[in-house]
Simulated assay, not measured.
Amino acid sequence: MAPHWFSGFLALWILLLRGSEGIRCYQCSSSEDGEGEDTCGAYRHYDTTKNTLVECNSGDSVTPGTFCMTVTKQGPRGFIWDGRWRQVIRRCGSVSETGVTGVCNWGIDENSVYWEECYCSTDGCNVASSYHLSGALALASLLFLVWRR
């Protein structure tokens, strides 16, 4: 029979070992795509075979974190970043605007650029954003047009 302190030590060690397992997220940015490429899913469905999952607490992660996030920005006609009118960034995150995951926040900034940030907390969950974008973008565009008149 093991001593009482040993079972406590073993339980703590298992807890620490499990706690060190971090979340894995997709990591890419449309600003890093070459001309004519869309490896981050700014214009087409995101292809998971073009990027690999990154452990959020490893040296491979651009930003460390405890959840995944997708940031999408879309400018009005004529607003272009690096020859593109839409940007997508997928990465790990450590602080969400609302403090919760499993939600998307969106708005229109002072330059009339639509933005959306989606947060999730399971491995590889930051693959989708376009299904959120289409409905929210339609509503935001309609509200913006009504507001501007």
Score class of each variant (00 low, 15 high):
V95F: 12
K73I: 07
D33F: 05
R77F: 04
L145K: 10
W81D: 04
N126G: 06
S58V: 10
S20Q: 01
D82P: 05
S130K: 09
I14V: 15
A42D: 09
V127G: 14
G75A: 08
G75M: 03
C28I: 09
F144H: 15
V100E: 13
G19W: 13
V146T: 15
W147S: 15
F9D: 00
I89D: 07
A42Y: 03
E116Y: 00
E55C: 13
E35G: 10
V95I: 08
P64S: 11
R44W: 06
A138D: 02
T63H: 05
N105D: 01
G22T: 12
R24S: 06
P76Y: 13
N105T: 05
M69E: 10
S134V: 07
G59H: 09
S141Y: 13
E35P: 06
I80V: 15
V127R: 13
G99H: 04
T39P: 01
T63A: 05
L145Q: 12
G8Y: 04
N57G: 15
S30G: 07
N105E: 01
L53A: 14
V146N: 13
Y43W: 01
T63K: 04
D109Q: 04
R84G: 02
K73D: 03
D82F: 14
S96P: 03
G78E: 02
G36M: 02
G124I: 08
C40H: 07
M1V: 01
D123F: 08
T122H: 14
R44F: 08
